[in-house]
Computed example of a mutant assay.
Amino acid sequence: MMLEARDNMEHEMWWEPRSRTANIWFYNWTKLGALYYLVPDEFVVDETVQDVKELRNQDGWNMSKLQQLFPTDIVDHIPEELDFHESTEEWDKPRWMMTTSGKFTVRSAWELLRRKFVKSDIYKSIWIPGLPFKISFFFLRLWKCKLPVGDIMRRIGSDIEGKFYCCDPKQCETVDHLFVTRKVSSQVWRYVKAAAGITTTLLQVKHVIQVWWNANFSSMFKSIIRAMPVITMWQIWKWRNTMVHGGKMTINKVIYEINLTTHQMCRVRNPRMQVPKSVPQIMQMIETYKPHIVSKIVRWNLPMPGWFKCNSEGASRGNLGPSSVAFCIRDSEGDLMHAAARIISDGSNLVAEAMALQEGIKYCVTNDLLPVNIISIVTNHFQGKQD
Rank of each mutant, 00 (worst) to 15 (best):
Ala354Asp: 02
Gly360Ala: 15
Leu357Asp: 02
Met337Val: 07
Ser324Tyr: 11
Pro322Ala: 13
Arg330Tyr: 00
Met355Arg: 09
Ala341Arg: 11
Ala354Gln: 02
Gly334Met: 04
Thr366Gln: 14
Ser332Asn: 10
Asn319Ile: 04
Gly360Lys: 15
Met355Val: 12
Pro322Gln: 04
Asn367His: 15
Gly347Val: 01
Ser345Arg: 13
Glu359Arg: 11
Ile343Arg: 15
Ser348Gln: 08
Asp368Pro: 10
Ser348Leu: 04
Val351Trp: 01
Gly347Phe: 01
Ala340Asn: 02
Glu333Gly: 06
Ala340His: 14
Ile329Lys: 04
Gly334Tyr: 01
Glu333Tyr: 03
Gly347Ile: 00
Cys328Ser: 11
Gly347Trp: 03
Leu336Asp: 01
Ser348Cys: 02
Pro322Arg: 04
Met355Ile: 06
Cys328Lys: 03
Gly321Phe: 04
Asp368Thr: 12
Leu350Lys: 08
Ser348Thr: 09
Asp331Ile: 05
Ala354Thr: 08
Ser348Glu: 06
Val351Phe: 05
Gly334His: 03
Asn367Thr: 15
Val351Arg: 06
Asp346Gly: 07
Val351Lys: 06
Asn349Met: 02
Val351Gly: 01
Cys328Tyr: 13
Ala352Leu: 08
Leu336Tyr: 04
Phe327Val: 11
Cys328Arg: 02
Val365His: 12
Phe327Pro: 10
Cys328Ala: 12
Ala352Tyr: 05
Asp331Ser: 01
Ala356Tyr: 02
Ile329Phe: 09
Met355Asn: 14
Asp346Leu: 09
Gly321Pro: 07
Arg330Gly: 10
Met355Gln: 10
Cys364Ser: 14
Phe327His: 14
Phe327Ile: 06
Cys328Ile: 02
Asn319Gly: 05
Thr366Cys: 08
Asn319Trp: 10
Ile329Cys: 09
Ala352Val: 00
Val325Gln: 07
Ala340Thr: 02
Ser323Gly: 06
Ser345Met: 00
Asp346Lys: 10
Glu353Thr: 07
Pro322Asn: 11
Gly360Arg: 13
Ser323Ala: 05
Gly334Lys: 00
Glu353Gly: 02
Gln358Phe: 03
Ile329Asp: 02
Val325Ile: 07
Ser332Pro: 03
Gly347Cys: 07
Ile329Glu: 03
Gly334Val: 01
Glu353Ile: 08
Gly347Ser: 03
Phe327Glu: 13
Leu336His: 03
Ser345Thr: 11
Ile343Met: 11
Cys328Met: 04
Val351Gln: 10
Met355Gly: 06
Asp368Lys: 14
Val325Phe: 13
Ala356Asp: 04
Asp335Leu: 06
Ala352Glu: 05
Leu320Glu: 10
Ala354Leu: 07
Ile361Thr: 14
Arg330Ala: 04
Ser345Leu: 08
Ala326Cys: 13
Tyr363Ile: 15
Ser324Val: 09
Leu350Glu: 12
Gln358Met: 12
Gly360Ser: 15
Asn349Cys: 04
Ala339Ile: 00
Thr366Leu: 09
Leu357Thr: 15
Ser324Asn: 13
Asp331Gly: 03
Ser332Val: 08
Asp331Arg: 00
Cys364Pro: 12
Arg342Ile: 02
Ile344Lys: 09
Gly347Leu: 00
Gly321Lys: 06
Gln358Tyr: 07
Pro322Leu: 13
Glu333Leu: 11
Arg330Asp: 08
Leu336Gln: 00
